[in-house]
Design a protein around this nucleic acid. Sequence first.
RNA 1: GCUGGAGUCGUCUAGUGGCAAUGACAAGAGACUGUAAAUCUCUCGCGCUUCGCGCUUCGUAGGUUCGAGUCCUACCUCCAGCA
Length: 395
Amino acid sequence: MLKFDIEKSAGLARVGVIHTPHGDIKTPAFVGAATRATVKALTMEQMRELGSQAILANTYHLILAPGADLIEAAGGLAEFSSWHAPTFTDSGGFQIFSLPDVKISESGAKFKSHIDGRKFEMTPESSMQDQWKIGADIHMAFDQLTKSDQYEDMKQAMDRTHAWLDRCVAEHQRLASMASTGDGLGRAPAEHPKGGAAGEKSPAGPVEPMQYLFAVVQGGNFLDLRAESAKYCASKAVDGFGIGGVFTAEGMDEMLKTVNSILPENKPRHLLGMGQEPLDLFVGAEFGCDTFDCVGPTRMARNGSLYTLDGRINIKNAKFKHDFTPLMPECDCDCCKKYNKAYLHHLFKTDEITAKILASIHNEHFVIQTVANIRESLLNGTFQDYKRSFLARYY
RNA sequence: GCUGGAGUCGUCUAGUGGCAAUGACAAGAGACUGUAAAUCUCUCGCGCUUCGCGCUUCGUAGGUUCGAGUCCUACCUCCAGCA
């Protein structure tokens, strides 16, 4: 069982520590989206420097390239990517559901690679197997999403997700027992790195040969479905929960209240894909989510949309051409400490790679630090004040 | 000086009788939430009451034509070849 200690809680919000085989995650925490085993435009070293505790990679992308077998041969995601710290993988459900030619049936999903048209089938079992090969600390159950906002469609996707969850749990347990005897997938005990601070190669040693499974709660914006899904997931032998299918912050607070009041307190909860808007992070943490991941901060960084305490700015705008002040004076990331807006503007206008690198450093630092600040404010009881002042200034 | 070719939005470019006129770049702005995203969208002659209307445009000045960036004449500029 994944160890999760709660240091303090207030209402649904809590401050805790997730103990993974690759180290601890102090929660609430923002997890960097490293879809293809890299956070776009950033090195793992830069991710460490800007305070990232964990990354989340994607099973769909990794089975297309370089392949789960190759990552297994490399010693797992952490070794392969040189991220010697906690890792998550998403199941691939989200990507597959968004492909144009996907056939979903009870058994799984058939789809073609968007890269070369190769045909694939992903099932709950194959997703579990691939995730074990990739070897992240925390795996997501293979779930089905729907873009529809119709109740019946949502219920159907939820029911299928639940049916798949049973198969994910069974396959996960089978793989776990094989791994514990040393003849299965995943890292054998002796080569499984332990603990270790981020940035240093972890000392080898006997550790629990374990990878952990999170169930994914579905149900869209229908509170009764969310409640049903939360109850179903809570009843399963899983180590934590992903909360999926959230596309806007609107109504998220009510949904999270419903879901997180039902989910067991002693297991971590990951809010899948949310965190582009600072509001998401405050609401998520306030209503009981422990970890977040989102592609928004780095994607927007690459497109020139940068966070400041006064809201997002588009650094490509002409008004920054002669602006020699730092992007965000209060920020202590490398981008803000060493460079000014006119320079960033110039790098973007001339399409230099460094533009995307510096912008990604800043945006990723901004969300990671915001969540870290939320953690601090929860610990010292100033969360509501912090939330109020932050949001008033930002929006 | 002669002969041939060329002058179109900031730049390059399409256009050979019905065009405010193609495409690219540049410029201006917007979007982005479990990443097919180093992406995508919009504006880009001027002015309005902007699903439309008016005005002014394709080196300059004339001409032919219902209608000219497109045809004709002259001139200006540039390029190539010949003197």
